[in-house]
């Protein structure tokens, strides 16, 4: 899964003439498709934007454990329980991987945690929506992981080497999760009447939040141009959203479920679907902390961190004792 709505700190894109010699050399490397590595020179804005983007991406993996973790103890069969556990474990692993990538940029994991816990850094808005039925676990895999993959596959080619390599590893597992989610939806959609109703209800609730995962429309995404020039963002928000809708609508049809959008129709001319925009007011409210689960999600992470302090301190104290003994 991934972070969105990354507010970049840079100003508008510089022209060649405005760039310092270092900046021009850097941009030439990016343009030539070279990977930037941790010890290479990079503009301060590039570094800051990446810390924010990768950090928020990592936070999203961690917070994303919660809505799905919510159903582990209630999963309906032993194998569904095992699959869901494996998936949540993968997500924690993705988080770890991404924090490591962020640390190559000169920030520590603890600093990033502090920023998350104090609300200075965001995570994907989708995880502020509740999982109310078992079908939601299917919908999250199918739609949320589907949207994440749509965003992450192009990032495998992003200019920052450690991030690009993280994406290559993570995408493999995400695709697997998405298929598992769709598999749950297939079972539910072809099951009892009650199961079908659960599946439709899950699609109704997760459709628009999934569309929001791509961020606001291009017209309102002021800093996209710089991120695209630096190749830390490979496609525009609207481009990816369109791609997601075009791919997902036939899957909903296959499930014989209805996408909750009266305006959804195939547009022959553009070779894609026309569809309704999500409610952007709702989106900005969620980002502001006013989504259905914002308080619970962040509260759970802060509680886990605070409750775990004695464990971390105990382990550090033990390691120091051992170090002292080895030195004597």
């Amino acid at each position: 899964m991934y972070a969105q709505m990354v507010k970049s700190t840079g100003s508008s894109v510089k022209t060649r003439e405005e760039m310092s010699p270092e900046e021009a050399r850097f941009q030439a490397r990016v343009d030539a498709g070279e990977k930037i590595e941790p010890k290479d020179w990079m503009p301060e804005g590039y570094r800051k934007n990446l810390i924010r983007q990768i950090g928020q991406h990592a936070h999203s993996e961690i917070v994303g454990q919660l809505p799905e973790g919510n159903w582990i103890t209630r999963a309906p069969t032993l194998s569904r329980k095992a699959i869901l556990l494996a998936k949540v474990q993968d997500e924690a692993g993705h988080g770890l991987y991404l924090y490591c990538a962020a640390e190559t940029l000169g920030v520590t994991r603890d600093e990033l945690f502090d920023a998350l816990h104090e609300g200075r850094m965001k995570y994907s808005s989708i995880f502020n929506y509740p999982t109310l039925t078992w079908a939601d676990i299917g919908a999250v895999g199918w739609l949320v992981d589907g949207a994440a993959i749509m965003n992450q596959v192009p990032l495998q080619r992003c200019s920052y080497g450690p991030y690009s390599r993280a994406m290559i590893r993570i995408c493999k597992e995400e695709s697997f999760h998405q298929r598992q989610g769709f598999d749950i939806m297939m079972k539910m959609a072809s099951g009892t009447e009650a199961q079908r109703a659960m599946a439709q209800d899950a699609l109704n609730r997760f459709w628009y939040p999934s569309l929001m995962m791509f961020g606001p429309s291009d017209a309102n995404s002021v800093h996209s141009a710089q991120s695209m020039a630096w190749k830390i963002k490979m496609n525009s928000n609207d481009e990816l959203r369109q791609k997601f809708v075009d791919l997902t609508v036939p899957q909903a049809e296959y499930l014989e479920l209805t996408v909750p959008d009266e305006n959804l129709s195939w547009n022959e001319e553009k070779g894609g679907y026309d569809f309704s925009e999500p409610d952007w007011d709702e989106f900005f409210e969620v980002l502001r902390g006013n989504g259905p689960c914002n308080k619970e999600r962040l509260g759970a992470r802060v509680k886990a961190w605070e409750d775990g302090a004695w464990v971390r301190e105990g382990l550090v104290a033990n390691a120091q004792k051992k170090q002292r003994m080895a030195a004597e």
């Binding site: 973790g69 949540v88 924690a92 692993g93 988080g95 759970a300 886990a304 961190w305």
Partner: peptide, 18 residues
């Protein structure tokens, strides 16, 4: 499994789920 997402640090979240 009740610990999922609530461990004292990330490595432990992974180990508990494992």
């Amino acid at each position: 499994s009740e610990w999922c997402g609530h461990g004292p640090y990330l490595e432990e979240d992974i180990a508990l789920a494992n």
